[in-house]
Design a protein around this nucleic acid. Structure first.
Lengths: 108, 108
DNA sequence: AACCTTTATCGTAAAATAACGATTATTGTA
DNA sequence: TACAATAATCGTTATTTTACGATAAAGGTT
């Protein structure tokens, strides 16, 4: 993202931007939708669902994990990813709050 | 964002990602919150609110406009920006739908 | 007409992102 | 123990993003 002056913003603004960033790629949206639908999910299954290489999918999974939206549990040789319920609720509340704070009525 | 294979995803996935991208920077979150709160808003006022140069803010405004979340009306020498009510509702519904589609219950 | 204000655009540089193949580490299996 | 499978990480490249100053365009003002 080039030069970033993000330090100068509030925690709430940075949190919201962080959730936005996690959602800012169709592959990550696809991963999240898959996890929501399937509940259980081995990493390999996600790779098979997407038109991307294993390493690229792994990167997207990492970003979602860093943003807190998902978590991964090692299960033998594979890893089971799923929605991180607590943080999902936080993101939902934060984004929902933003969108609901607008009640219509503009000047233009 | 580097090489993008976004063509291979569904319209819904791309739409959601587009909204995510619009929200992916604290400055744009700040702009949106300001517009929600103030209702009326001259571009210059937004510049004054942010720790960024006029040209950088103008770029962020453009991105929000491209994503459809805001619109600008020329008002003499200045421009009045505000929330685009229709698209705001669409984004709210799309993101809300994603977050509400998860009903808890994971394997991990 | 000359000038100031306001905002968009241009040109540029630094940094992040997206993508891939190759490699590594770990676990399970023959 | 040797080998296959799984997933993370490394190294690299192309593209996009962020940011800024400078300039341009357009609208007011004197």
């Amino acid at each position: 993202m080039g030069l970033t002056k993000a330090e100068e913003f509030t925690k709430n603004q940075k949190d919201l931007a962080s959730y936005g960033k996690a959602l800012a790629h169709p592959a990550r949206i696809a991963i999240l939708k898959h996890l929501v639908k399937m509940k259980s999910c081995v990493c390999g299954d996600i790779v098979d669902e997407l038109p991307l290489s294993q390493s690229t999918v792994s990167q997207h999974l990492k970003e979602l994990k860093v943003a807190g939206l998902i978590k991964g549990n090692i299960n033998g040789a594979s890893v089971c990813y799923c929605i991180d319920e607590a943080n999902w609720a936080k993101a939902k509340a934060a984004l929902g709050g933003l969108f609901e704070s607008y009640q219509g009525q503009n000047c233009c």
